[in-house]
Amino acid sequence: MTSYSVEVEFDSTISDDTAADLVDALNDVHGAVGAASSGNLSVILSIEASNVPDATAHAINRAQEAVTSVTHSPTLVTGVATMTEAEFDRRLADEPTPGDLAGQAEACNILGVSARTLEKLAGELAPHIVQTLATGPLYRASGLRNLARLHPLPPLEQALLNVISAKHAPSLSADPHYQRAEAALVLDETPFGTRTLFRTSDTQVRHALAALLERELVAPAPETNETLTGSPDLSSAVVLTARGHRHSRPLPTQSS
């Protein structure tokens, strides 16, 4: 014999007092009483049986008998779900905790992308969706963090981000990505303080900086109207966003 967990859903609701009576009536099968996603009455029973069909049939009969005894009226079963107790425990353990849930804004922060880019990643994100709400998907945050580790920023984008975050401290790295990022860096004193200004005709730096703006890891400095378009001698003042701070790393040393 195998232990099965069987959930039986009915087309009705009951009061709290009646629910307490129903739990007592189902004591021999460890009955649990609650509400299904539809809001209707749901009863979960622990049934010993040799197979799924037998467990399902026994649970339906036992649940209907108990519900009728406490409501004194016939009820209609609208659904049933049967699985072994072992599978029920496995699924229960796999349920995400509230702290492991992420909405769209949290997903963007974890992955370091904009909302527009998040939409483009729908295929990769699908396995990490816990539930889809009217406001959009709800993700398992731990899955998104694993995804972020598998898809780090391209080296030049990461170098630019780190250089901006370092507040103009020079890198001692011989890494060509850092050398290229720092070669484009110009410190610009304004009434608002020192801003990070990139002035370069280096196409790769321009594309990397544009990608950081698209990901919303950096933003145009508020005191400037300069953009990524214009003369070949690109001039763009940027500031690190809160998301950019979370994705920046310490500058490497000469030995690294």
Rank of each mutant, 00 (worst) to 15 (best):
S5V: 15
S5G: 09
D11K: 03
I14T: 08
S15K: 12
S15N: 13
D21N: 12
L22P: 01
V23I: 15
D24T: 15
D24M: 12
D24V: 15
N27C: 04
N27A: 14
G31N: 04
V33Q: 07
V33N: 04
G34M: 10
N40H: 12
L41W: 10
S46P: 00
I47E: 05
I47S: 06
N51C: 13
N61H: 08
R62I: 02
T68S: 02
V70L: 07
V70Y: 03
T71N: 00
H72R: 03
V77E: 06
G79S: 12
V80C: 12
A81W: 08
T82N: 06
D89K: 15
R91V: 03
E95Q: 15
P98T: 14
D100C: 03
L101R: 03
Q104C: 02
Q104N: 09
A105M: 08
A105W: 06
E106R: 15
L111I: 14
G112H: 02
V113F: 05
A115N: 10
L118D: 02
A126P: 01
G136M: 07
G136W: 02
P137V: 09
L138R: 03
L144G: 01
L144E: 04
L147P: 05
L147R: 07
A148P: 06
R149T: 15
P154I: 00
P155H: 02
A159W: 04
A159S: 08
P176F: 05
H177Q: 12
V186F: 11
D188S: 10
E189K: 13
P191G: 12
G193K: 01
R195C: 04
F198C: 01
S201H: 05
Q204G: 07
V205I: 15
R206V: 15
L209Q: 06
A210S: 11
A211N: 10
L228F: 09
A237T: 13
V239G: 10
L240W: 06
A242H: 11
H245F: 05
P250E: 04
T253H: 01
